[in-house]
Design a binder for these strands. Structure first.
Length: 889
RNA sequence: GGGCGCUUAGCUCAGCGGUAGAGCGCUUGCCUUACAAGCAAGAUGUCGCAGGUUCGAUCCCUGCAGCGCCCACCA
């Protein structure tokens, strides 16, 4: 058995955390039970990238989910928190390409097969790392169910979805203008392009008799028209005429199109259909020729004539030089512009014409819109609903093919003979159209998100109608950052509704990004990245978790500051020391099994009352995803009520000689502590398990309970322990607090050393209050560090005393501290003046209100009464202070 | 160009139609037998600006300013 004195003086997270996590795992507490009769609670963890490293965003995300899951588990739910990893197409491929490049190896040299082997090797090597890191955070996920988006069964679902959508004509292949990353050598979706504002230049170039303005002169090599507004009088005559494109001397026509802004530049726009999204649309309207002038690496191709072989930047330079030489460059002016960059590699995106696969998304989006409009899926905070809907209202077809090697290969086979495409679940051996065996599989892979959008379904076995799927789908809540609402959240809703005919989750809790203390995004290049594992090492997981939970405002970004972490580390330590105190003080005391409310101290009944309030508030907060609120309430109760007041109030009993009282009050003390640990556990699992186990080690009554706090019941208001609560006791303790507060204020301001035990007088005319005071003498004496307190009904001679007037409802209490011989009166006079100022200020405010006719006429009765009482209290106080000042001077 | 959010103590942030809050920092006094990662006391705010609604606004409404984010093809 542990001896209380042997407990370490400071909480040692290093020696506690690993131990309990292993214990939890060994007991299988985190496993969801498919045969359970309990209600289910399911959360899908957003799968991190397989090559990823844990960052603060993960820490936040995991903390919130774990808090919810642990809470629900304790509430009696059969919880499934599904872990896993995403293959993360482009990201992973880039990582491995870089690895290889450092050894001087190029992907192309290796070939597809060999390269993929390397990626799998890398995955095996680094893939498990993030799991280990998550474990450090204490995540209570069902590890046995961990999934990877490229697992065989997962891939099968992806394939099925592709084939089905194709058969429904919701997937099509087409030659379209897409965002092309010349670095990654693949098409990317609109979402993967990040627009950056940059300084650019607007060059005015002479095209025959016209002048066009452009920020990208090199693209003129691919111009196939110039456009003017149909109503533009200046150019009306020219519409339909041909002009000669400089440099290439190709003939292009002048067209009229509504999209042209007459007032911009010269009102004439050059049209480059193959490298500009606007121009592409215009070209389609006018049936224009489309000339691609770049190859896959954004290098000018043979269509660029003399400029062939130049990069786009070099081509721009050369084009401008040549135009200048020819006297065709009329003007250049600074012009802000936005440049699209690859989300993954930062390379400038080039719009390019290419053959790609698309999902016709509108039919899917419509369903996803409806469920949110109808409130079947709720966003927390609600304003993200608008963001979600706006995107879906304006959604465009989703380009899902990627010219990469790492990912799900597209299940389509091209026939070399008849050009027909065979799409099927099984590897095609011949063309389904002409029967030719001269076919080859499409080289492309699918967008990563084309597998992620199935995550809530295929992790549970879909398309098979598994027991797990029936039991855990739809899931309860999705917790994620706003940055993937479009990428992932919206698409999961679409997939869920289309394929499973059910929403994937009921609630979506959106949290912000974790930024540095100046509000900057954390990034390696800025060097402001905080590694959560460093923080875990330095402060402990619990401190980090509590900090994150306290910081997470309603969908706002978090500015992370280590100062705050410091404070919460102390909080964890405080919990530990409170435990240590209880155990030491109760060493050898047998706790009563049948607590008799009549034998308890007022402090006991008060703390149980406060505990009940806290249970109520914290439960409400957690049910509504108000993590900050929950954390705040718990912090306050633990530190300000339990430690600051209750433990202090308990000392007279604990250090006293009344053994019977100790068995009674001790039981309340330990009972409250144990329930507090349970209340805190979802947020700070480690220290609470340590507390629970330490108590369990010593007290047999707890020993009979569950062997881990993880599976203990979350405290509820129906707990019979709470019957010991007393509102009256709470009121009486409040009186004690006020008296102690008043005399501590006098002590502090007069700098009377805490080592000096003083005598005080407490006077009140209220017999009820007098009784309360007398009954609580032990508390007042102990907390006030008094030699003695006398309780009187009549005001004594207070000439050489500090007096503080307390008002309790209509009643008054004078706290009188004789100062003679202790201090001179200067400090006391200062104190009084300070207080007078405060009281006078408050008095003015209230008085002003009460003397206003309007207020008296219109304000609700309760408020009026409240103010009147307040005014009379303030009046009393003022008079009292003035009288005291007079006596002292 | 559209949308969203923020502006409260030196810093990081809660809060809310009825006398302004926390943590950290700061000042003062304490090694008071749980905790100095602690205890007690204290100081600090025209709650961004201007209007409006209201008996009463930091809170609700309007406008403005500053900051941040998201979306958008304006050459």
């Amino acid at each position: 058995m542990t001896k209380a004195q042997d407990l370490p003086k400071a909480y040692e997270h290093q020696s506690v955390e690993g131990k309990w996590y292993q214990f939890w795992l060994s007991k299988n507490y985190f496993k969801a039970d498919d045969s359970s009769k309990k209600p289910t609670y399911t959360v899908m963890m957003p799968p991190p990238n397989v090559t990823g490293v844990l960052h603060m965003g993960h820490a936040l995300n995991c903390t919130l989910q774990d808090t919810l899951v642990r809470y629900k588990r304790m509430k009696g739910f059969n919880c499934l928190w599904q872990p896993g990893m995403d293959h993360a197409g482009i990201s992973t491929q880039i990582v491995v390409e870089k690895q290889l490049a450092s050894q001087g190896i190029k992907r192309e040299e290796l070939g597809r097969e060999k390269f993929l082997e390397k990626v799998w090797q890398w995955k095996a090597q680094s893939g498990g790392m993030i799991f280990k890191q998550q474990q450090k955070l204490g995540v209570s996920v069902d590890w046995d169910r961990a999934k990877f988006t490229l697992d065989e069964d997962m891939s099968l679902a992806v394939k099925k979805v592709f084939v089905d959508l194709y058969k429904e004509s919701l997937i099509y292949r087409g030659n379209r203008l897409v965002n092309w990353c010349p670095r990654c050598n693949t098409a990317v979706s609109d979402l993967e392009v990040k627009h950056q504002d940059q300084k650019g230049t607007l060059w005015h170039i002479k095209y025959g008799g016209l002048t066009v303005a452009t920020t990208r002169p090199e693209t003129m090599l691919g111009d196939t028209a110039v456009a003017v507004h149909p109503e533009d009088e200046r150019y009306k005559k020219l519409v339909g005429k041909k002009i000669k494109l400089p440099l290439t001397n190709r003939e292009i026509s002048v067209i009229a199109d509504e999209s042209v802004d007459k007032d911009f530049g010269s009102g004439v726009v050059k049209i480059t259909p193959a490298h500009d999204f606007n121009d592409y649309e215009t070209a389609k309207r006018h049936n224009l020729e489309m000339i691609s002038i770049f190859d896959n690496k954004a290098i000018v191709n043979e269509n660029g004539g003399a400029y062939k072989g130049l990069t786009s930047i070099a081509a721009r330079k050369k084009v401008l030089e040549d135009l200048t030489e020819m006297g065709l460059l009329i003007k250049e002016e600074p012009h802000p512009m936005s440049v699209g960059k690859c989300d993954r590699c930062e390379a400038v995106i080039e719009p390019m014409l290419s053959d790609q696969w698309f999902v016709k998304i509108k039919p899917l989006a419509d369903k996803a819109i409806k469920v949110v409009e109808d409130g079947n899926i709720k966003f927390y905070p609600e304003n993200w609903k608008k963001t979600y809907l706006d995107w879906l209202y304006n959604i465009k077809d989703w380009c899902i093919s990627r010219q990469l090697w790492w990912g799900h290969r597209i299940p389509a086979w091209h026939c070399a003979d008849c050009k027909h495409i065979t799409v099927s679940m099984e590897d095609a051996k011949k063309c389904e159209n002409c029967g030719s065996k001269n076919i080859s599989q499409d080289n492309d892979v699918l967008d990563t998100w084309f597998s992620s959008w199935l995550w809530p379904m295929n992790t549970l076995g879909w398309p098979a109608e598994t027991e797990a799927l029936k039991k855990y789908y739809p899931t309860n809540v999705l917790v994620t950052g706003f940055d993937i609402i479009f990428f992932w959240v919206a698409r999961m809703v679409m997939a869920g509704l289309h394929f499973k005919k059910q929403i994937p989750f009921k609630d979506v809790y959106i949290h912000g990004l974790v930024r540095d203390e100046r509000g900057q995004k954390m990034s390696k290049s800025k060097g402001n990245v905080v590694d959560p594992l460093d923080l875990v090492n330095d402060y402990g997981t619990d401190a980090l978790r509590f900090t994150l939970a306290s910081f997470v405002g309603a969908g706002k970004d978090i500015r992370f500051s280590e100062d705050r972490l410091d404070g919460y580390r102390n909080f964890i330590n405080k919990i530990w020391n409170a435990t240590r105190f209880c155990l030491t003080a109760l060493e050898g005391v047998e706790l009563s099994k049948n607590i008799d409310a009549n034998s308890l101290t007022l402090a006991d009944k008060y703390i149980v009352h406060e505990l009940g309030q806290t249970i109520n508030e914290v439960t409400q907060a957690l049910e509504n995803y108000q993590f900050t609120e929950a954390a705040q309430k718990l912090y306050q109760f633990t530190w300000n009520e339990f430690c600051d007041w209750y433990l202090e109030l308990s000392k007279p009993v604990l250090y006293g000689t009344d053994q019977k009282q100790k068995t009674q009050s001790g039981a309340v003390l330990v009972g409250t502590l144990e329930r507090l640990a349970r209340l805190l556990h979802p947020l700070i699992p480690y220290v609470t398990e340590e507390v629970y186990q330490t108590l369990r080690n010593i007290y047999p009554s707890i020993k009979n309970e569950k062997e881990s706090i993880c599976i203990q019941e979350y405290p509820t208001l129906s707990d019979s322990f709470l019957k010991l609560a007393s509102k009256e006791a709470a009121f009486e303790i409040d009186v004690v607090k006020k008296v102690v507060g008043a005399l501590r204020n006098i002590r502090g301001e007069n700098r009377i050393s805490p080592a000096i035990k003083i005598k005080i007088l407490v006077q009140t005319q209220s017999t009820a209050l007098l009784k309360i005071l007398q009954q609580n003498d032990a508390f007042i004496t102990s907390l006030g560090r008094l030699e003695k307190a006398d309780y009187l009904t009549q005001l004594p001679d207070t000439k050489k005393s500090a007096v503080s007037l307390l008002t309790i409802g209509q009643e008054r209490i004078n706290v009188i501290v004789p100062l003679e011989g202790l201090v001179d009166f200067n400090e006391e006079i200062k104190r009084l003046n300070k207080e007078l100022e405060k009281v006078a200020k408050d008095f003015d405010i209230v008085n002003k209100q009460l003397t206003s006719d309007n207020f008296v006429k219109h304000a609700p009765k309760e408020i009026l009464e409240e103010k009147k009482l307040l005014l009379s209290q303030l009046t009393d106080k003022r008079q009292n202070i003035l009288a005291s000042l007079e006596r002292l001077s």
